[in-house]
Simulated assay, not measured.
Amino acid sequence: MGRNTGAVNYAVGSASGNPINMYIHGGAVLSFFTFLFGLASTGNFDQAMGFLFDFYLAKLLPWPLDEAYLAQTLTEFFYSHAITIGVGIASASSRWWASY
Results as ranks from 00 to 15, higher is better:
G38A: 09
A68M: 12
G17Y: 05
L70Y: 01
G43Y: 08
N44M: 11
L36I: 09
D46T: 14
A15Q: 01
G26V: 03
F51N: 12
H25Y: 09
G38Q: 05
L39W: 13
F37P: 00
I20Q: 08
V29G: 03
L70D: 04
N18A: 14
L30Q: 05
F51Y: 15
L60W: 01
L61V: 10
W63I: 12
T42C: 08
G27M: 04
H25V: 10
G50Q: 03
E67A: 10
S16N: 08
T73P: 04
K59S: 15
W63Q: 13
M22P: 03
P62R: 04
A28S: 03
V12F: 11
L65E: 12
A28K: 01
A48V: 03
L70F: 11
L65Q: 09
F32Q: 01
T73R: 02
A40L: 13
L39M: 11
L36Y: 07
F51D: 13
Y56S: 13
A15F: 14
F35A: 04
S31Y: 04
M49C: 15
A48W: 04
V12L: 14
V29W: 06
A48D: 03
N18W: 10
K59A: 15
A71S: 15
F32K: 01
K59D: 13
A48C: 07
F51M: 10
M22Q: 12
A68I: 10
P64E: 10
L70Q: 12
F33T: 08
A71R: 01
D54R: 07
L70S: 06
S14T: 01
F37S: 06
A58L: 10
L36T: 05
Q47C: 04
L70N: 07
V12N: 00
Y56V: 15
H25N: 04
S31D: 05
T73G: 08
Y56E: 12
L60F: 02
N21G: 15
A15P: 06
